[in-house]
């Protein structure tokens, strides 16, 4: 894909999710009444993400979802995008979300960004596993 004529390093969707992130958890995590949380990454590597889920017990659907991220613009945007994709899905459906799905939703990240910044789905899997264990 040519980036000619585009004045920003990322796609417009990435820019939008970076500048106006959805569903993020601002400040103390106890402010959000969540059922389980999952984590992925390491600040030493430059990216870390946490996903918090609230599950509707009857339908097994993700009723609400929030996240926290330490990371670059595409890490923030990809976690924000994931939260939009996952909201309302059943836990089984949410487990199926792949990095490619997030990349597609965002209109493709630069190749070198794909592996390091799309990690949120693993944090979500971790959260779902923790929910099922509890």
């Amino acid at each position: 894909m040519s980036t000619e004529g585009q004045d920003w390093v990322y796609s417009e969707t990435v820019k939008d999710h970076f500048l106006n992130p959805r569903n993020f958890l601002m400040g103390d995590e106890s402010k959000f009444d969540y059922d389980a949380c999952g984590i992925v990454g390491n600040p030493i590597c430059g990216d870390q993400m946490k996903m918090y889920i609230k599950v509707d017990k009857k339908s097994d659907k993700i009723k609400d979802i929030k996240w926290k991220t330490y990371g670059c613009a595409s890490a923030i945007a990809s976690t924000s995008a994931l939260s939009e994709i996952a909201k309302g899905k059943t836990l089984d459906e949410a487990l199926e979300i792949t990095a490619e799905d997030i990349d597609e939703y965002l209109g493709k990240l630069p190749k070198h960004k794909f592996h390091c910044s799309i990690l949120g789905h693993d944090a979500l899997k971790d959260a779902i596993n923790n929910y099922r264990k509890s």
Binding site: V9, L19, G46, D47, Y70, G71, C72, A73, A75
Partner: peptide, 14 residues
Amino acid sequence: KAAEGESIQLYLDA
């Protein structure tokens, strides 16, 4: 601390 450099750079860029 706790804020990543590229994100700061691009928020400043905006």
